[in-house]
């Protein structure tokens, strides 16, 4: 065996003609005198030939037609009308949602206040006292005690 043998990866690159010229010549020189490396290179070339036996396939006659259709479908979906329409719908939906929240809060507040006034009025009519006036502060204040004892606080 000749002096230092060439590494397997380098031999593989040699077979693929991927070594720089200087390196290539060096390896070639070595192969000429080293039977071990020569055998490795031969087996790599042999393998390359066997791999090359794999024949290519042909594309179908509908290839371009199918491709055109596929592109049209994708364009319609990705860059086209649907995407823009979806954006429009989303913006409109968001605007409606914001508007609904404002209106809802305003209406809710109004209804709540109106109801509170009505409840007060009904309570006033029923009991003869003003709810807010009677129970404005502390439920155990003098008014409340007076209401329970009907004026007899002693």
């Amino acid at each position: 065996m000749a002096r230092r043998c060439v590494g397997d990866i380098k031999l593989s690159a040699f077979c693929d003609n991927e070594l720089p010229e200087k390196e290539y010549l060096k390896v070639q020189k070595h192969i000429n005198i080293c039977p071990v490396c020569k055998e490795k290179v031969d087996s790599l070339f042999n393998l390359s030939q066997r791999l090359a036996a794999l024949e290519p396939i042909e594309y179908s006659p509908y290839f371009i037609g199918n491709l055109r259709q596929k592109i049209r479908e994708k364009e319609d979906f990705s860059g086209g009308a649907i995407k823009i329409q979806l954006k429009r719908i989303m913006v409109a939906g968001l605007a409606i949602a914001v508007f609904a929240v404002f209106i809802g809060s305003y209406l809710g507040k109004t209804i709540y206040q109106k109801n509170w006034v009505i409840v007060n009025q009904e309570f006033d009519e029923l009991t003869g006292i003003s709810l807010l006036a009677e129970f404005s502060q502390d439920p155990f204040d003098n008014y409340y005690i007076g209401f329970l004892t009907k004026g007899n606080t002693q």
């Binding site: 594309y59 179908s60 491709l67 596929k70």
Partner: peptide, 8 residues
């Protein structure tokens, strides 16, 4: 064929 159409 399917994948190559996807590629193009």
């Amino acid at each position: 064929e399917d994948i190559s159409q996807e590629v193009f």
